[in-house]
Amino acid sequence: MIRAEGIFKQFGDQEVLKGIDFTFEAGKTNLIIGRSGAGKTVLLKILVGLFAPTRGRVWFNNIDYTNLDKKGILAIRKEVGMLFQGNALFDSMTIEENIRFPMDMFTPMTAKEKLMRVDEVLERVSLGGVNPKYPSEISGGMQKRVGIARAIVLKPKYLFCDEPNSGLDPKTSITIDELISDITNEEKITTIINTHDMNSVMEIGENICLLKQGKLAWKGNKDQVLNTDNEELEAFIFASPFLKKLVEAAKKNGATSLENL
């Protein structure tokens, strides 16, 4: 479990986060949603410790991550994997070297064990055999998968994903979402995903917080999305008039949840 407690963040005189309280539940796919510029990336970077909050704390279970010494921070980070919005794959290394890097750095594994683990995670993200390619030689969707593979290679307890489906076509987006969600369930990881994609919300949102201009505007899960009368959430989810009409029609016909929509 990761808990944000009264998080404020200021850049110069711009207040980006204005008091966020939210609990990201263990073993679930947690979503941070909101429009572009709402402060999602900043919140995620505060959670992983790349930014320090101006005020407030981040708890990893019972550990106050915000006030840890360097040693404690490094210890927690060994349990964290992260997928960056731009993938952040090391572009002068091959895919195999990218995925091996955390193992090279932090484990005493033998070359053979490392190679087996590389193949295993690549297989898991359905990319078996791309080992010798360079990041620039594969498509955006494949780069995301490699990013996921690298993030999970050391079996993290926490997985952070910043906009995992930005820049991808809808079909690829959904496969990436499902992949992350499946891995979360299989490995019992606590996953936090930033997204502005409402498909993701409907497909994988087990615990959702909606940010609007740096404030928490709504929280709940994907089943509660349909039955809410929260204006902020409606404005976000039903930004497309087409979708709004569809859902209204379905509700008229007696739909009450995602399952019988």
Partner: peptide, 14 residues
């Protein structure tokens, strides 16, 4: 700029 440093930091590297 390409967030490689952030990625390494998250892995727990100094």
């Amino acid at each position: 700029q390409k967030e490689h440093i952030d990625a390494m930091e998250i892995m727990g590297l100094n």
